[in-house]
Write a protein that binds this DNA or RNA. Structure first.
Lengths: 227, 227, 227, 227
DNA sequence: TATGAATGAGCATTCATTCAT
DNA sequence: CATGAATGAATGCTCATTCAT
C-alpha cells in the first residue's frame, strides 16, 4: 500500500495468478504434458505475457518449484515444549497434515517425476524440505537426550526413524494412489503406532512414556481435525 | 520350433524389443515427454508396427507398466528360515537391492509421476508390488509371533514398520536426487539401524536378538555385495 | 521407368514441386519473409512432409540455392567458333538472356540479400556461377590471342571487361528496379556498344573487326529473339 | 539554442539514434529478419517511441532508405579539373572508395534484397544514386568531348562503360561474398586496367593519355590510401 | 511526452496417428 | 505382415502493434 504503484500491484497479482495456474497445471499434467497455452488460459493471461514474466517454460517451472519449496514446510519447525510425548504427538500431526495434504503430494509427485530432467530441483527440494525439517527434529531429539529422556547414538537415524515410522506407509501409498488419501482414522493409526514403536526403541523410560501416549491417543482422536 | 512358428518367435522377439525400448524411453522422459518416434527408433521398428502391436501410446504404456510390475518383485518372496535375525537380515538386503536398483527407481518415479493420469497403474503397482510383498512379510512375521519370537497386535503395521525403518530414508532421497544413489555402506547403516530398532520394539527377547544382530553386522559388511 | 517404383517417382515429383515452390516464395519474400506454411501451401504438401524431405528451413534454403546454381549457367559454356566477332556476338546474347532472365535475377537478388546470413551460398554462387563462366570466357579469349586476333596481358581482366561492358549496366538496373526489365532493344544497345568498345581496346585489327560487328548489328537486331 | 528548443534537440537526437540503429539492424538482418524490438533495444528507446516517431516498420524502413540515399553519394559530384587523365584517376578512386565501403555495400544489398517488396525504394535509389552520379559523369565526359579530348556518340553509354570497367567486377564479387572485400591493391588493378581500356576506346589521343596514365599508376599506388 | 505492459496472430517444428503399398 | 510416406493438430516461442499511465 505504501509505495507500490497500482501497476506494480497488478504485476504482482498477475505474477501470483500465473504461478498458481502453472503450479496447478504442472502438478496435474507433468512438465512435458503441460502446455504454455494451458497455463495462459488458466491464468487468464496472454501467452506473450507469460513469456515476458518468466522467459521460458523451463524457467517458469524451476521458478515455481524453487519458490514453493519453503512455503509449505514452515509450519512445524519449532516444537514448543509441553512434555516430550505431547510434543511428539503434536509434531506428528502437524507433519502428517503437511505431508499428506493433496497439493503437497502433487508437488512431491511432480518433483519426483522430473527429478531426472531437473536434478537441481530435486536437490533443492531435498535440501530445503526433508533435510531442513530433519535438522529441526534432530535438534529437538538431541535436547531430549540431553535431558535424559531419550537414548541413541546417531541423532540423524533417530530423526529419520521417527519420520519413517509415522509417515512412510501412508505417504508411499498416497503417492501411488492419488485418489485414495488416508482418512484421519488411518493417519491416527499410523501415528499412534509409529510413536509407540519409536518410544519403545528410544525412550529411557518406555513404560511411563507409552502410558502417557496411550492416554493421549484415547482422549484426542484427531487433534487438528480438519477432515 | 516346439509349437511356436518362426513368425511367432519373431513376433514375440519384436514385442519384447518394443517393450524394452518403450520402458527405457518412458522411464527416462516420462509419459508425455516420450514420442512414439523415439520408441520406434530405439526398438528399431517402424511406427506402424508399434501401432499394430500396441494400438495406442496409452495402451503401450499401461501394457508395459502392468507387465513389469511382477518381474522385479519376485526375488524375496519366500524368506527361508535360518533363524529369525538371520532371515530378517538377508531379507532386508534383498529388499534394498531391489528397491534401490536404478531401473526400479526409474520405474517407481514413472509410476508416481503418472499416478494421476493413469490411476489404474498406480493402483496395480501398489497392489502387486508393495502390498504383495507386505503380505509375504506379514506372513513371516506372523509365523515368528506364533513361534513366540515377536510380539505385536497389528501384523500389517509391524510389516510396514520393518519396511519403513529399513528403506524409507534412502528410497525417498534416491527418488528426489537420482544421481546420488546411496552406496552400500550407507545402505548398511540404514539396515543395521532399522533392524535394531525393529527388534528393540518387537522382539520378545531383545537382548539376545540384538546381540545376534550385532555379530551379523560386524561379520558381513555387505552380504550380497555387488557394488 | 526402369527400376524406380511409383513411390519413388512420386517422391521425386513431390521433391521437385517443393523445391520449385520454395524457390518461388524465397525469391519473392526473402529468407526471413518466407514461412514454411507458405511453401507447403504453394507446393500443395503438408508441412510435416516438407520437414521430412528437407529437415529445416535453413537446409531447404541452402539445398535450393546450391542445387539451382548450375542449372541456369550451362547454356553458354562452349563458344563454338564461326569467326571471333560472330562468336562474341552470339555469346553476348546467350549471356544476356541468362543473366537478365527474371527468375535468374530473382535468384541473384536472393543470394545477394542473404549473403551475410549464408556466406557459403554467396561463395558457392560466385565460384560456380560467375567464376566458372569467367573461366570459359578466359579460355576462349586466350585462344583468340594465340591466333593473333586479340592482344592483352591479363586474360582475367579481359574477360571481366567483356562481361562488364555488356551486362553491368542493365543488370545493375534490373537488380534495383525489378519491374523495369530492359527490353531487347535496350539490351541490343548495350551489347552492340559493349562489343565495340571491347574490340577497340583489345582487337589486333580493330578496323576490320568493328566493320564486321557493324554489319552483324545491322542485320540481326535481336538474334535469339524470344521477347 | 538558435531556434531549436532543447526538446526539439532531444527529439532530433533520438530520431537520429533510431535511424542509425534501424539502419544497422536492417542492413545486418534484412527487412523481415529485423524486429522492432531489436531496433528499440539498439537505439535504447522504448518501442512506443519508435512507433510514435515512425508509425510503422514499413514506414521506418522506407524513411531510412530514402533519407540515406543522398548522403553517401555527394563526395564525387564535381570532378575539378587538373587534366583529364588525372581527373579520371581521382574520380575513379573516389567512386571506388564509396561503392566498396562495407556500409554502402550493406545498404546496396538491402536495397537489392527488398527491391521486390519496396519497388519505390529501388527506384529512388537508382534515380538518386547511380543515375545522378551518371549524369555528373556524363556532363564531365561531354565537356572533354567538346574540348576534343574524347570521342563518342552516346554519352550515357560512355559514362556507364567507365563505371563498368572500373567497378563492376569488384562490386559484384563484394555483393556475393561479403567477408572478402577487395584490398586496395586489387582495386588498383581494376582501376588501372579500366581506365586503360576506357582511354584506348574513347580518347582522341590514346598514345599520350595512356602514357600519362601509366605514369600516374606507377607513382601513386593507392592515392586516397586509408586501408 | 515517453513507457511498461499487454496481446492476436504467426513462426518453425514435432506429435500421435493412419494410409497406400 | 511390415513399412515409407503423409497429415491435422499441437507446441514453445516471437512479432508488430497498441493501450493505460
Amino acid at each position: 500500500m505504501t509505495g507500490t504503484s497500482p501497476r506494480a500491484l497488478n504485476r504482482q497479482a498477475k505474477e501470483r495468478r500465473i504461478l498458481q495456474a502453472a503450479l496447478n497445471v504442472f502438478a496435474a499434467e507433468g512438465y512435458s504434458g503441460t502446455s504454455m497455452d494451458a497455463i495462459a488460459a488458466k491464468a487468464e493471461v496472454s501467452k506473450p505475457t507469460l513469456y515476458q514474466y518468466f522467459g521460458t517454460k523451463e524457467q517458469l517451472f524451476t521458478e515455481i518449484m524453487l519458490s514453493r519449496r519453503n512455503e509449505m514446510l514452515d509450519a512445524f519447525e519449532h516444537p514448543s515444549s509441553e512434555g516430550m510425548v505431547r510434543d511428539l504427538y503434536r509434531f506428528s500431526w502437524a507433519y502428517a497434515d503437511t505431508v499428506l495434504n493433496p497439493d503437497f503430494l502433487s508437488l512431491a509427485r511432480l518433483i519426483i517425476a522430473e527429478a531426472q530432467r531437473f536434478p537441481e530441483i530435486g536437490r533443492a527440494y531435498q535440501a530445503s524440505g526433508p533435510d531442513r525439517v530433519l535438522r529441526g527434529v534432530m535438534a529437538y531429539l538431541d535436547s531430549q537426550r540431553e535431558a535424559g529422556r531419550l537414548q541413541f547414538d546417531d541423532e540423524e537415524l533417530a530423526a529419520e526413524d521417527l519420520w519413517a515410522l509415522i509417515l512412510s506407509a501412508p505417504r508411499n501409498q498416497a503417492l501411488h494412489v492419488p485418489d485414495a488419501l488416508p482418512d484421519r482414522a488411518a493417519v491416527k493409526r499410523y501415528i499412534d503406532n509409529g510413536l509407540r514403536v519409536f518410544l519403545k526403541a528410544y525412550s529411557t523410560d518406555p513404560t511411563s512414556d507409552l502410558d502417557q501416549l496411550k492416554r493421549l491417543c484415547e482422549q484426542a482422536p484427531t487433534p487438528t481435525g480438519t477432515a
